[in-house]
């Protein structure tokens, strides 16, 4: 196994994911090495079937790799048990979904506060924190609205607030604009850029849309389960 070194927040070495489809073995990831530094906004770009989603799932600890190592925030998570992974996510990870995945019976504040509920925070404290975070994404006046009463863009902002509320070390976003129209996509991307700020938060976004990579500090291009390009973009 290759040595892991450097100041990176995420270090992936020689990562394989092989699915068995009957007799055949399909390699979704075929030896991935990458580093993402703390405070970076990284975009993992690739066509569908390239293995980019599998990579994200593995980074977020949703799926175990077949082989290789993943180190995030100083923890080697590739051999973690499921309950340890949950624990790990609770401490370090925020997640933004493509289809928002808000709880339909909860309003915006309650949705944002949900990860805090899982942490056992008391109601007054978590509501305060949730409202503060909603304010950051510009949705304070919608805080008592339920997901069904909001537009897709608004829902995704709630989703972003929910990922932010924990002040995680890293936020993963799985095609965050995949369900949005171009105008809203622009808004959401601006927001993500804003959140990433200047090294305040580490973001790792998966997308198939090459245009969106322009918002990122680093673009990692994936094809056939391999990193074919990994460039740092200098922003002025």
């Amino acid at each position: 196994m290759p040595e892991i070194k450097g100041p990176s927040l995420i270090k992936v070495r020689d990562l394989f994911k092989i699915y068995k489809l009957g007799e055949e073995r399909v390699a979704a990831l075929n030896g991935v090495d990458l580093d993402i530094e703390a405070g970076e906004f990284a975009a993992i770009v690739g066509a569908s079937g390239s293995g980019k989603s599998t990579l994200l799932n593995m980074l977020a600890g949703l799926e175990p790799p077949t082989r290789g190592s993943i180190e995030i925030a100083g923890e080697r998570i590739e051999k973690y048990s499921e309950s340890k992974l949950v624990e790990f996510r609770r401490r370090h990870v925020g997640f933004i979904f493509q289809s928002y995945n808000l709880m339909p019976s909860l309003n915006a504040v309650e949705n944002v506060a949900l990860p805090l509920v899982f942490r056992g925070m008391d109601k007054v404290k978590r509501e305060k924190l949730a409202i503060q975070t909603l304010e950051k994404v510009g949705l304070k006046k919608y805080m008592r609205h339920r997901p069904t009463e909001m537009s897709g863009g608004q829902q995704q902002r709630v989703g972003i607030a929910r990922a932010l509320v924990l002040k995680p070390d890293i936020i993963f976003a799985d095609e965050p604009t995949g369900n949005l129209d171009s105008v809203t996509t622009l808004e959401v991307m601006k927001l993500l850029r804003e959140i990433s700020g200047n090294g305040k938060n580490t973001l790792c976004m998966v997308t198939h849309d090459d245009n969106l990579s322009s918002y990122a500090d680093r673009v990692i291009r994936i094809k056939d389960g391999k990193v074919i390009e990994n460039i740092k973009i200098q922003r002025g």
Binding site: A60, S83, V86, E87, R89, R90, M103, F118
Partner: peptide, 16 residues
């Protein structure tokens, strides 16, 4: 199923 999955991603303990 989906709701439970989301809860897990958001860090809800398995025990919970």
């Amino acid at each position: 199923t989906r709701e439970i999955g989301v809860m897990k991603v958001l860090g809800c303990r398995l025990m919970d």
